[in-house]
């Protein structure tokens, strides 16, 4: 998957957060974006994912502009700094959430969740609530749920 950002400008609450940002990430490349706190890293990621409106420029995924395409149809996934697991759902429901949205049959969802939990040695945690598990395990779960979505997007 390739990503291209051209002359991006993002304004939030009348304040220019990003201006003239351009980057080109080719297929297979792994990029780390570093910067001081508050410099706009999350704003850039949110703009790419379609969670924020852009005022100027273009974002191209696989050489096609995604301007105006809603986040759920862009195929981009963000791992937010603050773990955003759904507290009212169980571990199983959290991991299976993307599959549920794609209307994957229940038995397939169950099997996939079981396999993913085995990968991070969390078998038996399926029916636990998020608040019942430790922070480290939450992070592992968050990754498993997101990995599932990334695999779906890439397949």
């Amino acid at each position: 998957m390739s990503l291209m950002v051209e002359d991006l400008k993002v304004v939030l609450q009348k304040k220019v957060i990003l201006n003239g940002i351009s980057l080109d990430i080719r297929e297979g490349e792994f990029i780390s974006l570093l910067g001081a706190s508050g410099c706009g890293k999350t704003t850039l990621l949110k703009s790419i994912a379609g969670l924020l409106e852009i005022q100027q420029g273009d974002i191209r995924i696989q050489n096609a502009s995604v301007a105006g395409i809603p986040p759920e149809k862009r195929g981009t996934v963000i791992v937010f700094q603050d773990l955003r697991l759904f507290p009212h759902m169980t571990v199983e429901q959290n991991i299976a959430f993307p599959m549920e949205l794609q209307k994957v049959p229940k038995d397939v969802r169950k099997k996939t969740v079981k396999k993913l939990l085995e990968e991070v040695q969390l078998t038996g945690f399926e029916n636990r609530k998020i608040k019942e598990i430790s922070g480290g395990r939450c992070r592992e779960l968050h990754w498993q749920g997101l990995l599932l979505q990334i695999r779906e997007c890439c397949s």
Partner: peptide, 21 residues
């Protein structure tokens, strides 16, 4: 809107994100 944002990037429509989270 934190959880709704997460739901959106996981593939939920705006209404579904609100309804589910």
């Amino acid at each position: 809107s934190r959880l709704e944002e997460q739901a959106r990037v996981l593939g939920a429509s705006p209404f579904k994100a609100f309804y589910k989270t």
